[in-house]
Every structure is written in structure tokens, then in C-alpha cells.
């Protein structure tokens, strides 16, 4: 696999990244947030959001047992209700890829592995490479790598570009999601810049955060990343996926994100091939809202399993 852009074109590209006005971005988001979702459209939105989840466990205390239970939940979100989708993927550490693959054999659910010394990314490149290869060799369908934020902030864009391009090569047929950890970046201008950089270097998806740092997937950051995807698409016709992760815990916020996608990118992105939510607690809120829509009754957490 090749990066999406050559290195010389890349420096020209970075210089052409338009600035981002934060207040204008917030106003755009405020407009989305006043959209009103009702009836069947809301149910459709909730189902869509469920199908876009990367159900995630990324803890030091993760065990095969925990991962297997989560994988069961990934397939059986709420068996008491009919017609629910499964989530899109589970997202685990490389050491858990084998367990997850086995648990999800014969399902369409993908296994994503975080990599490149997640979450800080502070490891020699050789380590990052091994980290990635381990995941790929154990059957990971998707690799969620972190960028070297320190090098990015220091202005060493070529280093960051090269690292992404190299990992992309190791991925083989696995799709590469590039995590920026936007909570560690400075401004929306940098978010736009890093998005453009990562897309140029070969990212299949761009992803906001590890979930370990706050703030994570804020609306202005997500909007900025979506516009970078749109710019790339308008220029090349190539679609890039988007994955906000961290902090999206309610159905309301998830639906607003989907409305943002609809207006900024278009409906072609409204499926789990091109859009994901990195979340662990979101699924149950979506399920509770789904039940509320069906029954008219506000729900209790006691009725929704917490794997």
C-alpha cells in the first residue's frame, strides 16, 4: 500500500491547509444541535449509531475473560429487542486480538487493535512496528495507531508522516485508523493540519482520541476532521473514514454527531464502513433510548447488560 500523497506534494499540501475559526465552528455545531430528530428517523439514527460502535476495552486489567464477555455483548446488544444490529467492531490491545478473533469467528464483527505503543506512542519505532505486526499476525482487521504527538508539536511533520506511512505498509489488508489524541494538540488549526497530514500519509480512518486524555472527541474537533475528509474527497474522490472516540456517552450526542456527518460529508458516510464511534458506555444509552422510542417509557439501566 502506498501513502495517499508523495512527500514533496505533502509539504505543499500542508501549507495550503486553510485556518479554522473556533467560534465559527462552535456556531456551526450549535446549528446542528438545534436539529430535531423525531419518530422513525430517530429510531433509524439509534440503530445506525449502534451499528457504528467499536466496543472498546483498553485497560491494564483486561483479561481474556473480560474480552470474551465483551465480544458476546458485541453480537447480542439486547436480545430482548428485535431487529437490532451488532456493533461494528471490538477494539482491544494487541495481546487480546487472538482471543477476540476466536470469540467473533463466523460473525461480521471486526477486531480492531490499538497499536504503536498506545496510548502515549512514546516507544522506539521498532517497538511500534512489532506491536503492529503482532496484531496483524493475530488477525486484526483494523489497526488503531497513535501518532507521535511530541514530534508533531515540535513541527517534525515529516517524521509523523513517515511513521504513519510505514505502519500503513505493515497493515497489509487491515484498515488503518490514525489516532491524533487531539486533547494534546493545541488548536483546531493543528487538528486540520494533522488530519490532512494523516490522510496524505495513508490513513483509512482518522480518529480523535485514545480515550485516556480529556478533552477527547469534542464537536469542534470532530467538525474540523470531517472538513479535512471532505476536502480530500472533493480533491481526489477518495473516501476516508472518521472515528470520534472518548466522551461520546449519550445517545443524544451520538445522534448529533451523525447529523454533523450527514450535513458535512453526506449520507455516503452514514454506515460503519466509513464511520465509527469509539465507546464503551454509549451502547447502553442508545439501547435505552431505542426502547424508549418503542415503548414510550423512560428506561432504567438495570434492564441493560453491562458487559
Amino acid at each position: 500500500m502506498q501513502p495517499n500523497t508523495s512527500l514533496t506534494d505533502f509539504s505543499v499540501l500542508l501549507n495550503s491547509v486553510a485556518p479554522v475559526d473556533q467560534i465559527g465552528s462552535l456556531e456551526r455545531i450549535a446549528k446542528i444541535q438545534t436539529r430535531s430528530l423525531k419518530g422513525p428517523a430517530k429510531l433509524q439514527g439509534l440503530r445506525m449509531a449502534l451499528s457504528m460502535i467499536d466496543l472498546t476495552t483498553l485497560e491494564g486489567k483486561d483479561t481474556p475473560g473480560k474480552v470474551r464477555q465483551m465480544c458476546y455483548k458485541a453480537q447480542h446488544l439486547h436480545d430482548q429487542a428485535d431487529g437490532l444490529p451488532t456493533v461494528a467492531a471490538v477494539c482491544v490491545f494487541p495481546t487480546m486480538v487472538g482471543v477476540a478473533k476466536a470469540a467473533l469467528a463466523h460473525t461480521a464483527i471486526k477486531v480492531a487493535a490499538v497499536s504503536t505503543a498506545f496510548p502515549a506512542g512514546q516507544a522506539p519505532f521498532e517497538v511500534k512496528k512489532l506491536d503492529t505486526l503482532h496484531a496483524v499476525e493475530h488477525g486484526a482487521d483494523e489497526i488503531d495507531m497513535v501518532i507521535s504527538r511530541g514530534r508533531f508539536l515540535a513541527g517534525d511533520y515529516n517524521f509523523v508522516f513517515d511513521e504513519i506511512a510505514a505502519i500503513k505498509e505493515l497493515c497489509g489488508s487491515a484498515r488503518l485508523k490514525v489516532i491524533f489524541e487531539t486533547g494534546e494538540l493545541d488548536s483546531l488549526d493543528q487538528v486540520k493540519r494533522v488530519s490532512t497530514l494523516a490522510i496524505a500519509a495513508g490513513a483509512d480512518f482518522i480518529k480523535t482520541s485514545t480515550g485516556k486524555i480529556q478533552p477527547a472527541a469534542t464537536f469542534p474537533v470532530v467538525l474540523t476532521m470531517l472538513t479535512a475528509i471532505k476536502d480530500h474527497y472533493d480533491k481526489t474522490g477518495q473516501m476516508i473514514g472518521m472515528k470520534p472516540a472518548g466522551g461520546i456517552s449519550s445517545a443524544k450526542i451520538a445522534l448529533q454527531h451523525l447529523l454533523l456527518v450527514k450535513e458535512v460529508l453526506g449520507e455516503a458516510w452514514l454506515n460503519n464502513e466509513w464511520y465509527r464511534f469509539g465507546a464503551s458506555s454509549l451502547a447502553n444509552d442508545l439501547l435505552m433510548q431505542y426502547q424508549k422510542q418503542l415503548t414510550g417509557k423512560y428506561q432504567s439501566a438495570s434492564y441493560f447488560s453491562i458487559d
Binding site: L37, P40, Q44, M48, K262
Partner: peptide
């Protein structure tokens, strides 16, 4: 990938 039609219902 075909695009999803997701239309907002009237919300009066």
C-alpha cells in the same frame, strides 16, 4: 457502498 437515506421527519 450505497448511501443511507436518513431524512429528518417534520418536527412541528
Amino acid at each position: 457502498m450505497s448511501s443511507t437515506n436518513w431524512n429528518l421527519e417534520p418536527s412541528l
